[in-house]
């Protein structure tokens, strides 16, 4: 069983900064980062009209399904996917086998530029997640929920 994903202030702001910069550098509409289990980690750009929670879950479903297909034909996974729409297009890249970077863009930019910028961002993110994983596994990083009581849990359901 893989370890739980835990996000700390320091790494979180670094990750957000990478996503923000990628949005600008690639001239993209939206950038978001999703954990392979469907949890949204970060979103940057014009996210106002997008249901990011649904997007995260569907991205994870898509990556999981494509991963299953890859294994059927003897590949480990398909690290990059590109989907072209009439107006907006979508590019997704698996980062460090744990998270998925998704970029949505239109004709104000080009696939070439987007690809190039994603490559750089993905290397940076990969390093941040490695550090995060080390931190999570280091001793003394217990669950913040170790202290919760039965009452805390019951209160959640008392409405």
């Amino acid at each position: 069983m893989a370890t739980q994903l835990v996000m700390y202030e320091e790494e979180f702001s670094k990750i957000n900064a990478v996503c923000d910069r990628l949005t600008k550098d690639a001239n993209a509409k939206v950038v978001f980062l999703v954990d392979k289990n469907g949890q949204l980690i970060s979103a940057a750009g014009q996210t106002q009209n997008i249901d990011t929670t649904s997007l995260a879950s569907l991205t994870a479903g898509n990556v999981a399904a494509m991963g299953g297909l890859a294994k059927l034909i003897g590949e480990n996974e398909f690290p990059n996917q590109f989907h072209e729409g009439a107006r907006d297009s979508l590019y997704m890249t698996i980062v460090g086998s744990r998270v998925v970077l998704v970029v949505i863009f239109d004709n104000r930019t080009s696939l070439g530029l987007v690809r190039l910028r994603i490559k750089k961002a993905s290397d940076e993110l990969s390093k941040i997640f490695d550090a995060l994983l080390k931190k999570t596994e280091s001793p003394g990083m217990g669950s913040p929920f170790a202290e919760i009581s039965d009452d805390d849990i019951d209160n959640l359901f008392s409405e």
Binding site: A2, V6, E9, N37
Partner: peptide, 15 residues
Amino acid sequence: MSFINYSSREINCKI
């Protein structure tokens, strides 16, 4: 595998 975010103070669980 839950996801705990100390920064946004959220915890996500999958059922």
